[in-house]
């Protein structure tokens, strides 16, 4: 995902001199093509995330399209007030890129885990929150971020995510992407963990439970129409994200579902429990500790269907 992003960004920057990429001393080797071809469009501001974000707002207010780049917590929480005031309040056209969503930097420990970013970015007026599932969505999300006028937060994996799309989908900000159809249950997921939702759907299908899988690469603004269709057409809707259950995709879907009148499916939120990791481990290990696994999702869906 990270490679797809940097390649697309280098390509876009070459044809659009308004694009300028700022990093807070991260991304070793990733921006070489960009910095060689367009040396004026790349600045390492040093280990100074707040300053990077403030500078991006200043550059944006002159008509440029700045990207800020760091590991998720440092691109978002470390400089949150600069994002809130300098970027969002002034509606500055800044694109904030956080790499390593969820537990992608697992063994690096809790300071490097990207588990609250979607929530805090979603809470900001004027902010668009993009969370692609695979390298193809990351490429399309990067293009969409440049084309969009206004602040965007782009939440990326670290690398090595499987490709989930056979061909590029119709990617539009604010629209979910249906990856497979099914009548009984719906799984709505965002980010690289969409692959786990697809695995769960295959297992459910084998047990006769037709399961729709939606990739939701835009967490904000949410595709409310698609959520409404899902809660009306399915018997159960399960959301899945590698992010705290407080305030992310699951919360957004639940908020939307609560506003829909009439008979609707129950919504179950799968995500990281409201706690910090205190055990060291890689991404797969920490997902397992938090129950973000295919088997747990399958069991939860079977459980709801059996009791409803």
């Amino acid at each position: 995902m990270r490679k797809a992003f940097t390649q697309t960004l280098a390509e876009l920057a070459e044809s659009d001199p308004r694009i300028i990429v700022l990093t807070a001393d991260l991304g070793f080797g990733l921006f070489e093509a960009l910095s060689k071809r367009c040396p004026d469009q790349f600045v390492n501001v040093g280990v100074a995330e707040a300053t990077m974000t403030g500078m991006a707002a200043g550059l944006a207010l002159q008509g440029r399209i700045p990207f800020t780049y760091s590991i998720v917590p440092f691109a978002t929480a470390r400089c949150y007030e600069q994002i809130r005031n300098d970027v969002c309040y002034q509606n500055a056209n800044v694109k904030i890129v956080g790499v390593g969503a969820g537990y992608a930097y697992g063994p690096n420990g809790p300071t490097h885990h990207g588990i609250v970013d979607a929530a805090i970015m979603r809470a900001l007026p004027n902010m668009t929150v993009l969370s692609p599932a695979d390298p193809i969505e990351a490429d399309l999300a990067t293009r969409a971020a440049v084309a969009h006028q206004g602040p965007v937060y782009l939440r990326l994996g670290r690398g090595g995510e499987p490709v989930l799309h056979a061909s590029p989908p119709d990617f539009r900000i604010g629209r979910g992407i249906i990856l497979r159809e099914g009548q009984e249950a719906t799984l709505i997921a965002t980010g690289s963990i969409v692959s786990v939702a697809l695995d769960a759907a295959v297992q459910l299908e084998a047990q006769g439970i037709g399961t729709r899988v939606v990739s939701m690469p835009t967490v904000k603004p949410l595709d409310v129409a698609l959520v409404e269709a899902c809660v009306r057409e399915s018997r159960v809707v399960v959301t899945l994200e590698e992010h705290t259950v407080a305030g992310g995709l699951g919360s957004a879907v639940a908020e939307a579902a609560a506003a829909i009148p009439g008979v609707r499916a129950p919504v179950r939120i799968f995500g990281i429990p409201d706690r910090f990791a205190h055990t060291v481990g890689d991404q797969a290990y920490l997902r397992e500790l938090d129950g973000l696994t295919t088997s747990r999702i399958v069991d939860a869906i079977l459980d709801v269907l059996a009791t409803s």
Partner: peptide, 16 residues
Amino acid sequence: YALNGSCLGEHPSRHC
């Protein structure tokens, strides 16, 4: 250190 299930991560945590 840094292995799955360890207390010692690539950055230090209080009381690990």
